[in-house]
Design a protein around this nucleic acid. Sequence first.
DNA 1: AGACTATTCAAAGGATCGTTTGAATACTGG
DNA 2: CCAGTATTCAAACGATCCTTTGAATAGTCT
Lengths: 224, 224
Amino acid sequence: MAHREFKDRLYGEFARIGKAVASPQRLEFLDLLAQREWSVEELANETDQSIANASAHLKVLRTAQLVETRRDGSYIYYRLADQNVVRLWQAIRDIGQERLAEIDRIVDQFMAGRDDFQPVDAQTLLNRLHEDDVLLLDVRPKAEYDQGHLPGARSVPIDELESHLEELDPDREIIAYCRGPYCLFADEAVELLRQRGFQARRMADGLPDWRMAGLPVQREGVNE
Amino acid sequence: MAHREFKDRLYGEFARIGKAVASPQRLEFLDLLAQREWSVEELANETDQSIANASAHLKVLRTAQLVETRRDGSYIYYRLADQNVVRLWQAIRDIGQERLAEIDRIVDQFMAGRDDFQPVDAQTLLNRLHEDDVLLLDVRPKAEYDQGHLPGARSVPIDELESHLEELDPDREIIAYCRGPYCLFADEAVELLRQRGFQARRMADGLPDWRMAGLPVQREGVNE
DNA sequence: AGACTATTCAAAGGATCGTTTGAATACTGG
DNA sequence: CCAGTATTCAAACGATCCTTTGAATAGTCT
């Protein structure tokens, strides 16, 4: 085969990106980084690993150019380098969801009764946003809401949901969303809300998917 | 962090897909499998590796459910399991192209003068297909053409191009395409054609990208 | 059924990766 | 300039991955 050196070097470079997504820890980072920027320490805490180890994984992601950094005060914040990285993570997620039976089993075990939550897809939801009968709840931590959220969504982090129940209009259907299709916050929110007599469902995906679909994202009152 | 077991198992599963794309050899396989189905032996020959080794890599791809097999006679043919696998490969390719400086360098070295070939993108080409002033040349091996090609394209494998030059209309602009943006066949075709006085350019991407864009693909005279 | 052959398996080596530990670095903020 | 701290580095270990080799398997075809 001619041009072998060209191909070896070329595919070798692309494989650096493949290697970057070849670890559970790094994929979890990407999922989190799709929500907002995080410091090394925050990521280490959120994912239960040592700071040195988190730093090593981040280095791999940075070498493959999937993430970028900026310094603010004494913290270094990591963010995705590109919306294409979300595309990459979505492609992996979609293949896994569609083809890996083991993922079904895990979801059945830990997101029991998920189908009862009648997940709403983004497009359907967009159409209903103009009607005024639906209340959108962003149940992610506040820091993620602040970096961008669905238009008109209200931030009620899952931990604070119980103490804000009386502020919610019981006549409007509530749709909760969080980080993505495998984020448990929305499931927990729907479960709690239904127990207390609300009509509630979850959105199928999360904010990054909404954004990738080209739908409008709100941030500090300004539309993107 | 609660739900750690859920996340570990879930991201662990997704990482199997990541691991599958973490090797240059397997990425090259995916690029080839996006063109047509191949037997183990064909893939091993095309990529200059031993059959046992190719078989081992294919096993990884199959375990991650990126490829499927069928038997025909005494050969086992591997094919992509899903169009989503092309999406995955495209996402990796796009990130690499946009962000890895080393890839630029490799392309400059081995695809010298590429920009002179004035690559045409798919959408532009689609519009010109209806006019009759352009001749589309599929310079991939015949077997790949047979599994699907651009509407109206003529198959002239790069090895046979020289001996078919006199059959080509010198008054029509020729657009050559092959496997993808990093496939050298189209570059070689354009170079040869221009030397012989033809007006020639290459298409920027390959057939799989054309198909993924939702554009029509022809196969054995039937449109897809 | 038996010869043939494409593919897979098993074992073994060398290389690479993941994690931990403790120290070094680099920047901040006063 | 100095103290403090978030982050990175270096070394070392075990685990995993890649490749080769030779044998085993599982089908086909006569």
